[in-house]
Design a protein around this nucleic acid. Structure first.
Lengths: 125, 125
DNA sequence: CAGCATCCGGAAAGATACTG
DNA sequence: CAGTATCTTTCCGGATGCTG
């Protein structure tokens, strides 16, 4: 597990949110789990660009931040499911707001992001 | 200027937002600028934990993403002001939503974040 | 005051191989 | 299927010093 550096700057809600949402895939992970409990393999299928290792790390962090909870079924083969906690549920409207803005401005966002990489391809991952 | 790696995964609004908001201080920078145009030195006074170099870099990125615009006054000593663009303005309600959630859950957030660092101090930056 | 150049430490994320 | 351990790359963010 990575250890984030000391955080003396956490003096406003914005920074605190930034802390728990820090991580390249967390928004999408939370979003998918919000659809209903998900198994790790499902999440990876939904987010194929993330490696299993990083997926696990970010799930662990979300778990430590009490946004998701993990249920382990003692069966063979192993089965694990992730759900949102009640706390995590409260975050979903926020993520939804973010996603809606992103969707509403998708074309422009793609433009301004990709103009930095004129030689690179965006889609087709 | 940093160059982010190739981005084949940008296939939903959530990812796109993550891309333009990626950066430790961008939420707060945008938030402060949304109060009205700000000079770099003002921003640094408001966010003392950020170095001038990083502040400039993130301002540049926000500028490239067309969320803020920079006005240079040809005077001596130099004077520069940052404002939100119209595009940037549309993001403010989103940031506000994020901040409100963070404020509403400030205590709990501080708990879950800091329990990872039992030996460290949170405030007083 | 505004901003850039250079150097640098360390965290985030990726690749691979392995265990239960 | 779920998860960890190790190694490596990328690159974010910080410190300092210089220019206009």
């Amino acid at each position: 597990m990575y250890e984030r550096k000391i955080l003396p700057y956490l003096n406003c809600g914005l920074d605190l949110v930034g802390e728990v949402l820090y991580g390249k895939w967390k928004l999408r992970i939370l979003w998918f789990i919000s659809e209903g409990h998900k198994r790790p393999s499902e999440l990876q299928r939904k987010i194929p660009d993330v490696s299993r290792r990083v997926l696990n790390i970010q799930l662990r962090e979300l778990e430590e931040h009490e946004l998701v909870k993990r249920t382990i079924y003692p069966v063979m083969p192993p089965k694990v499911e992730y759900d949102l906690t009640d706390f995590g549920e409260t975050l979903i409207p926020v993520i939804r707001t973010i996603g809606l803005w992103g969707d509403a401005h998708e074309d422009r966002l793609r433009d301004v992001i990709l103009k930095q990489f004129p030689d690179r391809v965006a889609m087709g991952g």
